[in-house]
Design a protein around this nucleic acid. Structure first.
Lengths: 106, 106
DNA sequence: ACAAAATAACGTGTCATAAAAAGGATAAAA
DNA sequence: TTTTATCCTTTTTATGACACGTTATTTTGT
C-alpha cells in the first residue's frame, strides 16, 4: 500500500511559499477566493488548498490558477536550464533517447 | 458534475514542455525511468505521466521528481515576481489580508 | 566493422485502491 | 455583511502493481 511519498520539510516550504505568492498575487488583483475559483473552473476549497501549498493538488489546477493571474509563463522556466545536466552531458557527449542499460540481472 | 476543467492548448503545451525538460534532465543523468521512480518514491507510470505533461499528476509528485534531479529550486521562481500585480497594487496602495467586499447580491 | 541476437528501457493497457475534489455547513475574522 | 478557515461526506479520479508488446542499446559472432 504505497501511500503519498514523504515530502521533505524543505520541499514543503517550496510549496508553501508558492501558495503564499499565489495568494498575494490574487489579493493584489482584488479577487476573492470564490471569484478565483469561478474563473479557474475550480472549487473554493481547491483554491484554499493551493494557497496553503498542498502537495496533493494536481499541477493542472495550479496551472489554471496561475493562468487566471497571468503568471502561467513562470512554469516554463522550471527544469528548463539544468546547468548540472549540461555539465554531465559534456562528460559523455553522446545523446540517447533512452537511459543506458544498467545490467540488471546476472 | 464538475469535471476536470478544460485546459487551453496553450497551457497544455506548457506542461508538455515541462515534461520534456524533466525527461531530458533525467537522461542527462543516465537514469532509467524505473530508477527515477524508485528514488522519487513513485511508480514508473507516474514518471511516464509526468514526462508526458499530464495535468492530473499532483504537484507534490512533480516536486519529488524535480528534487531527485536537483531542480526543485526552480519552483521557487513561480509566481514570485508578479510585476503586473505590483503595478496594480501601486494604483490602490493599501494592502489587505482579504479581498475587498464586492457587493455580491443587491 | 557489420549484422544479428540479447536484453533492458519504454509505451501503454487493465484493475483495485488510495486519494483528490467538490459541495455543504459553520464559525470566526475583517 | 462578506470573506476566509476548516470540517465532514460523497463522488470522481489518480496511482501503483502487474503485464505485454515494442524499440533502443549493447553485446556477440563473424
Amino acid at each position: 500500500m504505497k501511500t503519498t511519498p514523504a515530502i521533505l520539510p524543505k520541499n514543503m516550504k517550496i510549496l508553501k511559499d508558492l501558495g503564499e505568492h499565489i495568494q498575494l498575487a490574487r489579493l493584489r488583483r482584488k479577487l476573492s477566493a470564490e471569484q478565483m475559483a469561478e474563473r479557474a473552473g475550480l472549487g473554493r476549497k481547491t483554491i484554499y488548498n493551493i494557497e496553503q501549498g498542498s502537495p496533493t493538488v494536481a499541477i493542472g489546477r495550479y496551472l489554471q490558477v496561475l493562468f487566471v493571474l497571468g503568471l502561467e509563463k513562470d512554469l516554463t522556466q522550471v527544469a528548463a536550464a539544468d546547468p548540472l545536466g549540461r555539465k554531465l552531458q559534456d562528460a559523455g557527449i553522446i545523446t540517447h533517447k533512452r537511459a543506458p542499460k544498467q545490467n540488471k540481472k546476472s
